[in-house]
């Protein structure tokens, strides 16, 4: 049963991800991206990480994708399928994407996958997660991410500000 659900979820996620990158209509790509995010949320749910599933839908589908679609709606001609899909920087993008693929592949290849089930998550999972985020082990990355987000926030205001 769980196996079947996992396979169906993975197929939906991967299939929609494929459509996202191959579709010529940017708006439709964004919609398929929603299915990808929901599929990933489903995988989290199967791993009994309901909190992450909820956050995944809330942040990615509810906020990030909404903003992506917002940007697409506001951009002229972006949805026109006759517009060229490539510009002069395509080779740079290809190199970066290829590097990212190599890094991810190496990480995944080297990761020790636990063969045995890791057991039930504890009941007070969310509280433990909160504690862990401010524990010495993770507090530095956590704060660095905050600063990164703050910088992005200030930067976007600077760009959008009327002169």
């Amino acid at each position: 049963m769980a196996q079947a659900i996992f396979i169906i979820l993975s197929l939906i996620t991967l299939g929609c991800a494929l459509v996202v990158v191959t579709n010529r209509n940017l708006f439709h790509s964004a919609l398929y991206l929603a299915f990808v995010f929901v599929g990933v949320a489903g995988l989290y749910f199967m791993l009994q990480a309901e909190f992450f599933a909820g956050i995944q839908v809330l942040i990615y589908v509810g906020a990030i994708l909404t903003l992506i679609i917002f940007a697409i709606m506001l951009s002229r001609d972006l949805m026109n399928p006759n517009v060229r899909g490539f510009n002069r920087q395509w080779w740079a993008a290809a190199i970066v994407a290829g590097l990212l693929f190599v890094v991810l592949a190496v990480v995944l290849w080297r990761a020790p996958w636990p063969a045995a089930p890791v057991g039930e998550p504890s009941a007070d999972f969310i509280a433990e997660l909160g504690q862990a985020l401010v524990s010495p082990a993770y507090v530095l990355p956590f704060e660095v991410v905050s600063i990164l987000l703050l910088a992005a926030l200030v930067g976007s205001i600077l760009i959008a500000r009327e002169r």
Binding site: G54, I55, V57, L58, V61, G62, T66
Partner: peptide
């Protein structure tokens, strides 16, 4: 509660 907020976004 998180589920409710997330689904409202959908």
């Amino acid at each position: 509660v998180l589920y409710v907020v997330a689904m409202a976004g959908l």
